[in-house]
Design a protein around this nucleic acid. Sequence first.
DNA 1: TCGTTTTTTCAAGTTTTTTTGAAATAAGTG
DNA 2: CACTTATTTCAAAAAAACTTGAAAAAACGA
Lengths: 164, 164
Amino acid sequence: MDDAPAETELSELESEAVALFVRLVQLLGLPKSIGQIYGLIYISPRPLTMDDIVSRLGISLGSASQGLRQLRTLKAIRVTYIPGERKDHYLPETEFRKLFANFIEDQLSPHIEVGRDAIDHMTRLAESSSEADAIHYRARIDKLRRLHSIAGRLTPAIARFINF
Amino acid sequence: MDDAPAETELSELESEAVALFVRLVQLLGLPKSIGQIYGLIYISPRPLTMDDIVSRLGISLGSASQGLRQLRTLKAIRVTYIPGERKDHYLPETEFRKLFANFIEDQLSPHIEVGRDAIDHMTRLAESSSEADAIHYRARIDKLRRLHSIAGRLTPAIARFINF
DNA sequence: TCGTTTTTTCAAGTTTTTTTGAAATAAGTG
DNA sequence: CACTTATTTCAAAAAAACTTGAAAAAACGA
């Protein structure tokens, strides 16, 4: 019945919101489309469907579907069911504290884990080397261990800091 | 006089150091070669030349030159002049506190700056909109402003935290 | 200054990441 | 259940990021 493609231009406010989140997610190493989608949902006064996102941002269905999934995984958005509507409607999580906690947990913590194993392995390698350089290696590896320890304590500290 | 290409394999310890820093710089959104180069210089008992880096890591001169430049810009390495040697020799900056302070200053602070302008612009746009949604927009933009303020205070706080 | 060695630059090539679009699947409705 | 609509999947295309190598420039030493 309605077959107009609803290609409404973004308002200036929406454009700014989208651009802001695009920059933010690129800083975090996530794809641009994630920032576009979240930005639009974030600023919107009401829940948006995947269709809204596709038509307003001019991105493909595939991008939208994958982007929405990743945002759900990060718990940056959630679905709300509107009675009598078939499509899923998406709402933003607006508590950035939670968003960053999830991001740290999902994207950072695993790497810190791997780092510990690497440093332990390096320690063993340096111990079994009885060369003249062994002292040097131990000192450098110790510095790494201290850095690692700080990283491990930093992420929870940041989460606390954000808790305004 | 010596024309052997000095293609010494990396020791296991060197490989681990390189791999560790590759992961770290990828987390920070920097190219892999930056991590390789810094990792090798970091673990080395003595200063290395660009040539050492090219031959030991098996990367191109171009990559090495560009990577070394970026590392100098970040103040992650510095040149040491060795009497009677023509080539530049590179030493690592091993104080991670300084490294992160430089990184934040160079790569993060500019973005935070831009964010403030964007939020101010959004505020003006929302104020001039006299629609029913204006209240909603103001609330969302205020949350952004709080996030931005936290980001601005967080980076110096991290620098202090690392100061062990 | 001249010849040699070292470093930088940058266009082209390669690799990696992201996006697309069409087909398949799933989900909601009558 | 059959039909329609919505969503997901994934191979291929496009875009972005990184690396290469050869030529140019700079630096050094005699």
